[in-house]
Design a protein around this nucleic acid. Structure first.
Length: 299
DNA sequence: ACTGTTATGGTCATGATCTT
DNA sequence: AAGATCATGACCATAACAGT
């Protein structure tokens, strides 16, 4: 390897492409003699003429043809991994951004995100993916998914995070509930029938444990698969649902439910944004992180 | 720290070779 | 034969290295 360097491979690639030493030199910003000397070193190294003059230009020998794909592969890896990152232009980009989020986080985030994207970035696409019990870290590391959004703490080394907001919980009751008006006593809370979202997505199971410890098991009469089942069920029920404040206020606005402060203390949680260090400097990922952060601040 | 040697990679000028 | 193109030699600048 001592006598072979990347520039020689670039020379090889350029001559192959241009079929001319001189023109290849122009494309690389090198003089013709430099190209010729470089070709001479390539010939020494590979022990082959590599390119011969013909009426069609400098044509590759069979040996050169057999090397071509490997040289292209090496140069491709180098340019992809080591060259300065290309600027990300959201106006012209057509890439897909993806993130893990709970259904309620996606429901809050997506409208705001799309309102920001659509006017200026018509070709961008967005994928909101449900939280997974396992494998989210691998998906972030591989680049399959750009970000994870939520009350997550299990990501280990190699991940960056930024706090988005601190959330507490509220209780929802239907707007024309026969007994509850704007406020809730401890007695009312503990004696009411409850709907529980269970199982909760990864990171949110603290709430479920807390409620199961605090409430009489007989009072937990309904388990729902996600936060937004609340939208169809609560208007026709006298039950209470305890959920994160933003999800609660969003749901309440849609169905005209009452948002009640909890009469008992339940510890809140931090919603954070996570990404893998591989994409920390990636300009597209940086841009998307900012969009998500700002989309939440829009609300 | 200084110095000489060597390798590398550049320019310029020019010769060699190929195509038309 | 002319023009285009490639190869090569002379020379220079620079950096790395070894020896003192």
């Amino acid at each position: 390897m001592r006598s072979l360097d990347l520039r020689l491979l670039a020379v090889f690639d350029a001559i192959l492409r241009e079929k001319s030493v001189t023109v290849a030199g122009e494309s690389l910003g090198l003089s013709q003699p430099v190209m010729s000397q470089s070709l001479s070193r390539l010939r020494d190294y590979f022990g082959d003429q590599l390119f011969v003059r013909t009426s069609e230009g400098m044509m590759p020998t069979p040996r050169a043809l057999s090397l071509a794909s490997s040289v292209g592969e090496v140069l491709g890896i180098v340019s992809q991994r080591f060259e300065p990152p290309q600027a990300f232009d959201p106006c012209t980009s057509s890439r897909t951004f993806s993130f893990f989020a709970t259904d309620f986080a996606a429901a809050i985030l997506v409208p705001s995100l799309m309102a920001r994207f659509r006017p200026h970035s018509p070709n961008l696409r967005v994928r909101a993916l449900p939280m997974r019990p396992k494998g989210m870290d691998e998906a972030l590391e591989s680049g399959e998914v750009d970000l994870a959004f939520g009350n997550l703490s299990e990501f280990g080394t190699g991940f960056y995070q930024t706090g988005i907001y601190h959330s507490d919980y509220v209780c929802l009751a239907r707007g024309d509930h026969p007994e509850i008006r704007r406020a809730l006593t401890v007695q009312q809370y503990l004696s009411a029938s409850h709907a529980l979202i269970s199982p909760l997505p990864p990171g949110y199971d603290g709430l479920e444990k807390f409620l199961r410890d605090m409430l009489d098991p007989a009072r937990i009469v309904l388990c729902l698969p996600n936060f937004f089942t609340v939208l169809t069920f609560l208007p026709q029920s006298d039950m209470l649902v305890t959920m994160p404040r933003r999800a609660g206020t969003t749901a309440a606005r849609i169905i005209g439910a009452q948002v009640l402060e909890l009469p008992v203390k339940i510890p809140g949680f931090d919603v954070k944004l996570f990404w893998h260090e591989r994409f920390h400097k990636d300009l597209a990922n940086q841009w998307f992180r900012n969009q998500v952060r700002e989309a939440f601040n829009d609300r």
